[in-house]
Amino acid sequence: MKWSILLLQAGLSEAAIRFGCSTVSIQRLDPVVQPGMIPSAHVHQIVGGNAFGPKMEGDIGEQASCTTCVYTEDLSNYWTAVMYFRHENGSYMRVPQYPNAQLGTLGADDRTIKGGMTIYYTQKDFWDNGQEYITSFPPGFRMTVGNPATDSLDAARSNRGLRYTCLQDILTRGSETADFPTQPCPAGIMAIHHFPACWDGKNLDSPDHQSHMYDTTLGGFREAGPCPESHPIRVPQLAYETMWDTSVFRDMWPKDGSQPFVWSFGGTRGYGTHADYAFGWKGDSLQRVMNDSCMFHRCGSPGVQGVLKTQTVEEMNACAVKDMVMEETEGWLDELPGAGEAPVEMEGKWVAM
């Protein structure tokens, strides 16, 4: 698909937003990598609008009726694989998620949000917005980052936007690694996904869901490098943070000291971490905030009238997607959902589940 760009003469953009989204669904669906397949190869945790399903086409911002994100005009979908704990007896249990700290849009008790993750749209880095015009993603836009077939530490390190933090407390930052922490983390594991921010300006997707983008990301919310001529359009720097509460398994850590966590696609080292994005902001709302001069809470939060409208935690948590796969993903499981099924093609490679 092609998209013609009309750059707005609105001056240079200066906004950045950070907000929480509760869980909208946990099931084996992947409308970007495996559209129409029920079930997909592995379990995903999804946040955002309720237009999410096995196959999504067109402008999902016009199709969804609610969102689990704090900003009501954001009907996009964001998803990653699910983290499981593997017990010494060979059974598995899904690791619960908990909300990030200081979201600013959730009121006094951030932890009342239902799982989910934190979403960022930044323009230069975490502290400054720079002086470059930022173009919103267009309706129908899709992309992924990472690959579940990544099978070495060197390959994982080469993607500087995909990292883990062993949380000493909810505010721990830095000390990022490309693989799972090898020791128990007091406050859990934060999985971090930074997407590319250079677009070719033409294609809403590509066969591998990545070639229409170019990655100049340095990770750690540092300023990314300039976009190349092949991908000249600077779009918002999209990032996810998911707080996995691995601390609930601290009394079950294997006696041999081995790392017990595993992604839902079977990755035991963390190398294959990946994430998907389907744009669904309503109308021109994302471009509108990118053209504003607000940063984070000042773009809209309880008690602060900003360019974006917010909703309550109760309204976020009430939005949901029905289970279309009808399989057990909770409690103690004998095997990961999808394990033992025939190999499937994922992001250009055949992966045995």
Rank of each mutant, 00 (worst) to 15 (best):
M1A: 05
I5T: 05
L7W: 04
L8D: 13
G11Y: 04
S13V: 08
A16M: 14
R18W: 03
C21V: 13
T23K: 06
S25R: 09
I26V: 15
L29R: 07
P31M: 04
G36T: 15
A41L: 13
H42E: 05
H44V: 11
H44M: 10
Q45I: 14
Q45K: 09
I46L: 03
I46R: 01
I46Y: 02
F52W: 14
F52H: 05
G53D: 15
G53E: 12
P54Y: 05
M56V: 12
D59F: 04
I60D: 02
E62I: 12
Q63A: 15
C69D: 05
E73S: 14
W79G: 04
T80E: 03
A81F: 00
F85G: 07
H87R: 08
N89E: 03
G90A: 04
Y92W: 05
R94L: 13
V95I: 07
Q97V: 14
N100P: 00
A101C: 09
L103E: 07
L103T: 07
L103G: 15
A108E: 08
D109F: 00
D109C: 09
D109V: 14
T112A: 11
I113P: 00
K114T: 14
G116C: 14
M117H: 01
T118V: 08
I119V: 15
I119Y: 00
Y121E: 03
K124A: 14
D125C: 08
W127N: 08
T135A: 02
F137T: 09
P138R: 14
G140C: 01
R142V: 05
M143D: 03
T144I: 11
T144L: 04
G146Q: 05
S152W: 10
A155P: 00
A156T: 11
G161T: 12
G161C: 04
G161F: 03
Y164T: 12
L167W: 00
Q168R: 06
I170S: 08
S175F: 15
E176S: 10
F180Q: 00
P181F: 05
Q183C: 02
P186V: 09
A187N: 07
A187K: 06
I189E: 00
M190D: 02
F195V: 07
W199V: 01
W199K: 06
D200Y: 10
K202S: 10
D205M: 00
D205A: 03
H209Y: 15
M213E: 06
G220Q: 11
F221E: 02
P232N: 08
R234L: 13
P236N: 12
A239L: 15
E241Q: 10
T242R: 12
W244M: 10
M252R: 08
D256T: 12
D256L: 08
G257K: 00
Q259H: 01
P260H: 01
F261I: 06
W263F: 13
W263V: 10
S264T: 06
F265K: 02
F265G: 01
T268H: 06
T268I: 12
H274N: 04
A275I: 03
A275D: 02
D276P: 01
Y277H: 15
W281E: 02
K282M: 09
D284S: 14
R288T: 15
R288L: 06
N291W: 01
R298T: 15
C299F: 13
C299I: 15
P302F: 12
V304C: 04
V307Q: 00
V307R: 01
T310N: 10
N317E: 03
A318M: 11
E328P: 01
E328L: 09
T329N: 07
L333C: 07
D334E: 09
L336K: 09
A339L: 01
E345R: 13
G348I: 01
W350T: 07
